[in-house]
């Protein structure tokens, strides 16, 4: 397939730069289907492809076998050598036209119906719970990589790529949006799957607001904007392994979340606060979020349940 990759997939258009390099929309000449091609350039030494790449891509392939409805399909992978020091790994994903960002932009006023938001959130959390139970975290969840099909099905994309790309990230200085980053990442503390829940909370709020919740311009600015809403966390919750001191921030008290997300109902507001919890250990998990009372009242029309 290495030799045929160029022939089998015929590039149609460039779709977005992406943090990790150019993404192409292409047509699979065998099936006629549209696909999204994402290439990673991996440094290769005399021992071939790095272990990390082999393991991470193998993990994505394993996840693929579960055929989860809320995760984008990884249809093919090929590795081609570019130079002695570089191998190009191309991941071939199913192509979905629309991401949550454009979906929200296209929604006419007054915005999405509450039931629609609930359905999108349920699907989003189902996908996340699946990834997290397989020990995969997304790390860069944002409306741009949450795909929404024309049937309204949510599919997570770009998960697990962060680790594949991280080894060569230094080569391409890119601006990655800070808006969906949790405090522990902004503070450069250790982090795990709760990072994705924070991002999900930001996205939850954005579905009602149709604009981002926290639009910081730097790490410190982003943290400041977060504390304006959730309040400055107590000293004992501040991580000890970080350089940025709590004293750098004004001692603000939490404000009501409904000041920022007025359309949200009571259960929704409760869930949102559990997602936007400063301490990652106290933040709600994807599985518990799905059991939250916000989802338990009247049955909404769901695309997927798993």
């Amino acid at each position: 397939m290495a030799d045929t990759a160029g022939i089998q997939y015929e590039p149609v258009a460039e779709i977005g730069g992406g943090a990790y390099g150019t993404v192409y929309k292409a047509r699979d000449t065998e099936s006629g289907q549209f696909v999204a091609l994402k290439s990673v350039r991996v440094q290769t030494d005399q021992n071939g492809l790095p272990i990390s790449t082999v393991r991470e891509v193998a993990l994505l392939r394993r996840l693929e076998q579960f055929d989860h409805p809320n995760v984008v399909r990884l249809m093919d992978v090929c590795a081609t050598q570019r130079t002695d020091q570089e191998t190009k790994v191309t991941l071939v994903f199913e192509h979905v036209d629309q991401d949550l960002k454009t979906y929200l932009e296209r929604t006419p006023a007054p915005g999405l119906a509450p039931d629609r938001i609930k359905d999108l959130m349920r699907q989003l959390l189902c996908g996340l719970a699946f990834l997290h139970s397989n020990r995969v975290m997304h790390r860069d969840l944002k409306p741009e990589n949450i795909l929404v099909t024309s049937q309204g099905q949510v599919k997570l994309a770009d998960f697990g790529l962060a680790r594949i790309y991280s080894c060569h990230m230094a080569l391409t200085p890119v601006v990655v949006t800070l808006w969906y980053r949790p405090p522990e990442v902004l503070l450069q503390s250790s982090y795990a799957t709760p990072v994705d829940i924070w991002s999900t909370g930001c996205i939850f709020a954005e579905m009602f607001r149709r604009k981002p919740l926290f639009c910081g311009e730097s790490e410190v600015d982003q943290l400041g904007k977060i504390f304006e809403v959730i309040g400055l966390p107590p000293e004992e919750e501040w991580p000890t392994d970080v350089t940025l001191s709590r004293k750098n921030f004004p001692p603000v008290t939490p404000r009501s979340i409904t000041d920022f997300v007025p359309e949200i109902n009571e259960q929704g507001a409760q869930l949102l606060l559990k997602m936007l919890t400063f301490d990652p250990l106290k933040r709600i998990s994807a599985l518990s979020a799905l059991e939250h009372s916000y989802f338990q009242d009247e049955e909404t029309l769901t695309q997927t349940k798993s």
Partner: peptide, 21 residues
């Protein structure tokens, strides 16, 4: 040669589509 070995590595990975589970 080492070169042949690494080329075979890519060939196998592509053939298996990186499915090593």
């Amino acid at each position: 040669t080492k070169h042949q070995l690494l080329r075979m590595e890519r060939k196998v990975l592509c053939g298996l589509k990186f499915n090593l589970s």
